[in-house]
Amino acid sequence: MDIYTNNYVIVAIFLILGVLLPVATVSIVGPLLRPKKPTAEKQTTYESGNIPVGDSWVRFNVKYYIFALMFVIFDVETLFLYPWAVAYKELGLFALVEMAIFITLLVVGLIYAWRKKVLEWN
């Protein structure tokens, strides 16, 4: 139990340090060292030296959503694969057959996406 608590104390320390370093350098040490003379020109959005045209918060290619969906499906699949892999040696042949069926089902999904040409980028 002690080792468990200690482990997560360390994890918490790492995460806090990870947040602290950027915050400390950018917001606490930085302002003491760097100049701050904002002008309107400096604060315009960069667009190769031209005056920016329109807004950039626009609708973008739907392809990105499809890849995000594919990612969710296969990443969740991987989450199921991990516990199976850890316990595999104890579970025996039944686990192998089950997982083969599970992977086959997902491969069918992948083939479907492949045939529907959503994996192409054009």
Partner: peptide, 25 residues
């Protein structure tokens, strides 16, 4: 470190600040 930190006027202030932390932590 000693370079001026400019932030575009049209940027989303909160998210603009948050992004480097999210990438580094």
């Amino acid at each position: 470190l000693i370079k001026e930190d400019t932030r575009p006027k049209n940027a989303d202030r909160a998210l603009f600040t948050l992004a480097p932390i999210l990438a580094y932590a």
